[in-house]
Structures are given as C-alpha cells and as structure tokens.
C-alpha cells in the first residue's frame, strides 16, 4: 500500500523545500475541497500532502500600495467578510463566493481554485478581468505573474517544480472602474459553472469606456482573457450596439466542449449573454465609483 506523508510547514521556504524535494509527488493542501475529493475518488494519490495553512502569509488579507494582498489559502467566507476588499473588487469576491456551498466557502481558497486548473473555476475569470496577479514562491525565489498566465490546460499549470502560489495581488482600482462576474449554472447553487464571465470596465467622466478586460470560464480548455471582447467596449459609451459586439466577440472566443454540463452551442451562446449582462453590472458600478 502506498504511504502518504502529511507536513504542515510554518514558512514559505519550508513549504518550497518540501514540494521541490518530493518532485511531482507532493500536493499543497489549502481548503482541500478539490484535493480531498480527488484523493477520495482515487484520482490522485500524492506522496506528500503539504498543508500550507500554518504559514501566516497564506492566510493574510492586507492593504498594499492602494490594493490588497490576499493569501492564497484565505477561505471565501473570510474574504467575503472583508468589507474593504468587497467594496473595491466586488466582482472578484462575488466570483470567489460562488464557489460551492456555505460549507465549501469555509474552506475553499483562491489559490486552490486557480491551481486546480479547471477551465470552469469561478474566481479565475473574475481575477483575470480585474487584472489580479499572483505571487509564486519556488526554489528560485519569488515571482509575480498575471493570473491568466497560470492555467495551461485542464488540470495543468505553468508552475514549475516546487513552486506554489503564496498570495494574490488585487491592484488599486482606477477611478470610475467597476467589475462584475456572472456564471450560469442549472440550479441556483452547488453546480460547476457551465459558462462564467468576468468583466471590468473603466469609464471617463463623460461615460465613455476607456479600458476593459473580459475573462471567460468554462468555454475553452483554460480560462480566457478575451481582448476582442474588451476592444468591443473601449471607446464606446457601452450602448446596445457595443454590448451586442461584446457578446458576439465573447461567443466568438469560445472553444468549448460538449459534456454533461452543457453543449458547444449552449456555452457559445450563453457566454455572450453573460458577458453582456456582467458588463452591464460592471458599468453600473463604474458609474457609481
């Protein structure tokens, strides 16, 4: 029988050492809401479980340079209770809080949601739209990378051997900027996104969109940053035509699969619908900021 070790290091450096020593055999444990399910289903059997929740950096939410540094193991329920973060990046927090039930929220983490590398992760498209970056620690030290650069294919990330995500940086929100995330699921809760859309827009004083980012989930092998969809908004007053162009661009960017959760046709169409609806909410927020 295969034996598994459990380690709960107190520092980032110890965690890096454990992860790199074990090669691909080690798995970081944050909320465990994916890892433990996969272990239980015997899809994976790690040699070492590295519980990162004893490392203070991983559990911290603090203001930094006008934005926020959020530990990679902070549970959704904790971030949702942080009024300052919610006020600045409501879309990111809302996406994070959509993951699973209240029970899951007590454990699930941004780091886990990103590094599980599911195309349908809820928080990832929202973080992509908001321009969130993550701090990665590894044998070569620490580095910062945009969220959209992490997932490379279903279940795979660009993280090297021994690397893991320590924290996320939610940048300061520019003036007249708002973000929003919407997903479609068949029920009201407890489902994996069939389509997810995160949108962030910045307006000038006259209400013209000066910058936008659009992230899509569950419509391609990885979460997407869709430049064409953003381009459809920039320079417009987010009128119906612009919104229709956004929807068309979002749908055009889709490269989904048919599966038990949705069809190619369905995902492609609804991606446009949700991008448009999320842009509507984001622009409302931008106007009131």
């Amino acid at each position: 029988m295969r034996s598994v070790r459990y380690e709960a290091p107190a520092t980032v450096e110890e965690a890096v050492a454990l992860l790199s020593d074990a090669g691909g055999e080690a798995k970081p444990l944050a909320g465990g809401t994916d890892l433990i399910v996969q272990m239980r289903a015997r899809m994976i059997s790690p040699g070492v479980i590295v519980d990162v929740k004893n490392i203070p950096d991983l559990l911290e939410v603090r203001a930094q340079d006008g934005g926020f540094r959020v530990g990679a193991a902070v549970p959704g329920a904790v971030l949702g209770e942080n009024e300052a973060v919610v006020a600045m990046w409501p879309g990111v927090v809302e996406a994070f809080e959509l993951i699973g039930s209240t029970q899951i929220q007590g454990r699930a983490s941004l780091g886990g949601n990103l590094c599980n590398a599911s195309p349908a992760a809820d928080s990832t498209p929202a973080m992509i739209a908001a321009g969130v970056t993550c701090e990665i620690a590894g044998p070569g030290g620490r580095r910062e990378a945009p969220v959209e650069d992490i997932v490379t294919s279903p279940g795979k990330t660009s993280l090297g051997n021994g690397e893991f995500v320590v924290s996320f940086y939610l940048p300061p929100r520019p003036a007249r900027t708002g973000d929003a995330y919407l997903r479609f699921i068949p029920r009201t809760e407890m489902d994996i996104a069939v389509v997810g859309a995160g949108v962030c827009v910045t307006l000038d004083e006259g209400g013209t969109c000066t910058a936008a980012r659009v992230g899509l989930g569950a419509v391609a092998p990885t979460p997407l940053l869709v430049a064409e969809a953003a381009d459809a908004l920039v320079g417009t007053r987010l009128d119906d035509d612009a919104m229709a162009n956004l929807a068309a661009a979002a749908s055009a960017a889709c490269n989904p699969i048919d599966d038990k959760r949705g069809t190619i046709t369905y995902r492609t169409k609804v991606a446009g619908v949700l991008a448009r609806r999320a842009a509507g909410i984001a622009s409302e927020r931008a106007r009131s900021n």
Partner: peptide, 15 residues
C-alpha cells in the same frame, strides 16, 4: 471547525 461551517468529509482528520 474553528468556528467555520465546513464539510467534515472535505477536511483531513490531521487538520
């Protein structure tokens, strides 16, 4: 678990 509602099936006993 430490004041947070969780599923006991999704936490390790060692935690």
């Amino acid at each position: 678990l430490d004041g947070r509602l969780v599923c006991a099936c999704l936490a390790l006993a060692v935690e």
